[in-house]
């Protein structure tokens, strides 16, 4: 089963009430918020209503909130090679 990965790229401020309602129904509260939904005709129709505001990707499995955060976090870039006696 595949999922839509929907990210709100542009804010819904200034959009008609119907459009803002769709964003609310998708759970997209602020820009760059990411949600995952299974690929169904209902969700596809919702995406069509806000297609100018979101970016959509099809993924195999949904990520948790922590996993999405971990994607953005840069690599530490170092590791402890030799520890001093402590």
């Amino acid at each position: 089963m595949s999922y839509f990965r929907i990210t709100l790229q542009r804010s819904g401020i200034g959009m008609p009430k119907r459009t803002q309602g769709v964003l609310k129904a998708l759970g997209l509260r602020h820009r760059m918020a990411t949600v995952f939904y299974p690929v169904t005709p209902e969700v596809a129709g919702q995406i069509m209503r806000v297609k100018e505001l979101v970016s959509v990707e099809e993924v195999e499995k949904p990520l948790t909130k922590d996993e999405v955060r971990a994607e953005r976090r840069p690599d530490p870039g170092f590791y402890l090679e030799t520890a001093a006696p402590r």
Partner: peptide, 12 residues
């Protein structure tokens, strides 16, 4: 978590 004398490897 590091103390003086530790050697870090920088890999990026």
């Amino acid at each position: 978590g590091v103390v003086p004398g530790d050697v870090l490897r920088l890999n990026r």
